[in-house]
Nucleic acid binder design. Sequence first.
DNA 1: GAAAAAACTTTACGCGCGTAAATTTTTGAC
DNA 2: GTCAAAAATTTACGCGCGTAAAGTTTTTTC
Lengths: 343, 343
Amino acid sequence: MPGDTIRNMEDFAAVSGISRPTVSKYFNNPDSVRATTRERIEAALDRYDYRPNIYAVNQNRQQTKNIGIVVPFLSDPFFSEIARTIEALVIAAGYRPILLSSHGGQEQENDNLDSLRSLKPAGVLFAPLGRASDKSVIETFCKHVPTVLFDSNLDGMGEAFIGSDNASFVDQTVEYLCRSGEPPRFFEMRTPANPNANKRRTAYIAAMEREGHEPIVHKVTGEGWGFEEIGRAGAHAAFDAGQLTSGTVLCSNDRLAIGFLAAAYERGMRVGRTEDSDLRVASHDDHPFSRFTCPSLTTAAHDYDAVAGHAVRSIFELIEGGEDTSPRDETLYPARLILRASA
Amino acid sequence: MPGDTIRNMEDFAAVSGISRPTVSKYFNNPDSVRATTRERIEAALDRYDYRPNIYAVNQNRQQTKNIGIVVPFLSDPFFSEIARTIEALVIAAGYRPILLSSHGGQEQENDNLDSLRSLKPAGVLFAPLGRASDKSVIETFCKHVPTVLFDSNLDGMGEAFIGSDNASFVDQTVEYLCRSGEPPRFFEMRTPANPNANKRRTAYIAAMEREGHEPIVHKVTGEGWGFEEIGRAGAHAAFDAGQLTSGTVLCSNDRLAIGFLAAAYERGMRVGRTEDSDLRVASHDDHPFSRFTCPSLTTAAHDYDAVAGHAVRSIFELIEGGEDTSPRDETLYPARLILRASA
DNA sequence: GAAAAAACTTTACGCGCGTAAATTTTTGAC
DNA sequence: GTCAAAAATTTACGCGCGTAAAGTTTTTTC
């Protein structure tokens, strides 16, 4: 026998000296067979490089070992980081992650969900686009596939939502900025793609009123996911109008802040918390590049690990626990203030 | 019949009034059936949301419609951008992209290839880690799966290699820098992960000699994929030693340059091509973030579209054309010099 | 060491679809 | 309208594996 090519589980069972149903059992759960049997199979496994045909396996199993991961924009390092964390946890649990990016578009998001449905995943971890999402498509999807939302919530959709507590982000930055200098004005996109942006604005207004200051919101125009350029162009427009050239600016997110800082630099403005600075800039997200901006960016960090860990735990509880009748879990993790040079 | 749930192609064929083999033919290629037949199937398709079971399909087809895309580090926006471009082309060709990141590690790269083999992809577009790659694993993989390498070449592996012409990148930046000011010193990692880095150093030395200047290479220490931090720490170390504080610095890649610029800013050094600047900094890659550095970064841009397009075309030629006896295609696309404020 | 329990083997069926061969129907050209 | 070509239908088998049932062997328990 040795030397032949192994074409299927039948062949492999033959060379390992174990019956095919037992070999099948082994591949589903190596601990479900006797130790001596396991050893014989594993001995055969490193003589031949057989592995079960994944398509035949998934055709017959009631449930695949696939976990879908959908993010709105993978080129945004924030999402690629959280996707990476989630991926690692999914693999550790013995499942196969399937990573899809919606590239900022509704059509691609819908295609991704459509594609996932035909893959019959055991569950899906889904960060929706937000405002641009097609709610009815998502609702239908969630009815068919166990889904946990993360990052952006959509009311009532999915079995749970795990995200960051936007109010915590803004409360901490506003409190710090007010305590350490002039109260901040808020810098954001006029029509943000993401529901978190709205929560941040609302939280800003509430926090400012709590601190006894008048909230001032500066909205800039621009569509799409090129936030840095929108921030840069918006900052230049503001400077041209004589606005935001001094005091403190709190950006809705780091990518806008990166653009804002670039514009400030181009104008020769000095940003920072030192005496000789023209203005302070802070933001939210702790984007991977925010420590390399000039100056480095004071921001509020997501708890990546907590969000990723909780989301993954949730989906596996759903998968293994079956139907849960408990109320929809909506957990928000607080931010961690990161003080750097910009404010 | 209407109202029933469609469980398989048999059911669907029944409600559409067409025989199952013909319906099967339709799903393999809608143009292979008569127009009237196509209309009847498509009429049924929007009354029921049937789609063929992808696992049963792939089990029986000699070839799946999957195209693997493996990149070394998806959190690097350079790779997420090129992955996005490739993905779009693959989808347009009617195939399903499967995106995997090696997260900078050999083990993950091997796992990715292993995982892909069991998915029986029609072809794979593979950007290897480079120095950290397990060459023997990759060689074995390429024997079993039609593979086109991109970004980093590995001698003789895969059916083709499509990448950027590192010499073109460096020639253009060196020529420009020499023409417009002091000749550059080269700033790079001591043990770069990527073979492109070595080609760039070699090209730098050759270009400098051509220009009649002595090449000076400054190597910084650091492991892993946190290039920005390695660049920042390396720059600070250089400044501490009184090096690179004036003149012109050419970084091996933009991510190092981002760290270098951050360090320069922290030192209060003025970077740029204006009279009052302390030094000039340029680099290579046109990283998505490079236009938002302070100052914006003069760099050499990859031709994303050309590389992605050629790589995708190559893999489909392999898939559809069968065995090619022609010599291994190694195409390198030249860079485009991007002049910004830093040099 | 006997009985009970656990693990394994044998046999067999079905999953949903690709695909081949033989037959029947439809189409298009004259 | 005829006839050849094209397309559809009927019938049938096989892909590789999950899984159930019944029988056999091995292990555990006291």
